[in-house]
Design a protein around this nucleic acid. Structure first.
Length: 306
DNA sequence: CGAATTTGACCCGCGC
DNA sequence: GCGCGGGTCAAATTCG
């Protein structure tokens, strides 16, 4: 399979080039939207990348009906929607540090969607080896915090967006920015503002395709998303359906995904009626997909109650 | 005025 | 040993 060959050759540290590879293959249509490189879900129970981001079942079933596609861009939703410019791809990166690797996780996909099974069988080994160096470096950097901490799994979200910092429902504080070698675009470092939560994310733009934003999450939120809490004070002004996929993927890009995965039993894409104001009736636009696009894309076990 | 961002300095390990 | 690059810190600055 073509997909597999590409994935096998991917190193997580070069997510940008990875993504460009995905695109370059077919008329700028992503070859896949989500893939799980190391099946860590089994290691951590049913932990999916949504869980990693701290989005749990409650939110899936919550008012938004939104499958919590945390790639919505509410920095400027209108901008994104209007420019038709968001697509999302996720990459799960093996931790591959020496501590966690002693328990190599079988890569057998759990019954899931055709997509997930086709992409998740790959890689634990292949992925772990090449990225171990990078993992070490991360560990080193962690030490500078004073305590040695196990490196968390990382998930890279690749989003076609004109906005650098994609809103994902959490509050982040930027703590650094570095120029990236061989790239004109700097990499930004963010940390979750919640005191007890040390989830980090890096945001960088692919230099091979400047429209692609690579967001790498590291760690797992220990708290609910302030913006996803139905009645949280911080989200009182947030439409309840904020995280429905209307903001996650513009219909046009959903269309691309549908085209990309014709074998998936997706409901037909909604009419291209979205705009920045479409935050109030998204559910009506997606009567068949209570949990969002990602539910269709991700293995079903990720959406099951623990 | 507190929170968030900016940005240069610093730390660390790796490769040569 | 030294330079390089990734990641983090923290003081200064900006913003709401």
């Amino acid at each position: 399979m073509e997909k597999k060959e590409i994935m096998m050759s991917v190193k997580m540290e070069d997510a940008s080039s990875l993504f460009s590879s995905c695109y370059s293959n077919s008329n700028n249509i992503p070859l896949w939207s989500v893939f799980d490189l190391c099946q860590e879900t089994e290691e951590k129970g049913s932990l999916g990348f949504m869980d990693l981001l701290g989005v749990h079942q409650d939110y899936y079933n919550g008012g938004g009906g939104g499958g919590a596609p945390l790639l919505a861009d509410n920095n400027s939703p209108s901008q994104v929607a209007g420019k038709d410019s968001t697509e999302a791809t996720t990459v799960k990166e093996c931790p591959s540090n020496s501590e966690t690797q002693q328990q190599p996780t079988p890569t057998t996909p759990k019954s899931a969607s055709p997509l997930s099974s086709s992409v998740s069988t790959t890689t634990t080994v292949d992925q772990a080896a090449p990225s171990s160096q990078h993992a070490d470096k991360l560990l080193k950097a962690k030490k500078t915090n004073g305590k040695k901490r196990e490196r968390e799994a990382r998930y890279a979200f690749m989003t076609k967006s004109e906005v650098d910092h994609l809103e994902d429902g959490y509050r982040w504080r930027k703590y650094g920015q570095k120029a990236v070698k061989n790239s004109p675009f700097p990499r930004s470092y963010y940390r979750c503002t919640s005191g007890s939560c040390n989830v980090k994310k890096r945001v960088e733009r692919s230099f091979t395709d400047p429209t692609i934003v690579v967001t790498t999450y590291e760690g797992q939120h220990t708290h609910p998303s302030p913006l996803l809490m139905p009645r949280s004070s911080s989200s009182s002004s947030m439409p309840q359906t904020y995280f429905s996929h209307q903001h996650y993927l513009h219909p046009h890009h959903q269309q691309l995904l549908f085209n990309t995965f014709p074998s998936l039993d997706f409901p037909p894409p909604p009419p291209p009626s979205s705009s920045s104001q479409d935050t109030t009736n998204n559910n009506a636009l997606f009567p068949l997909s209570d949990h969002g696009l990602l539910q269709d894309v991700l293995p079903s076990h990720m959406f099951k109650q623990e």
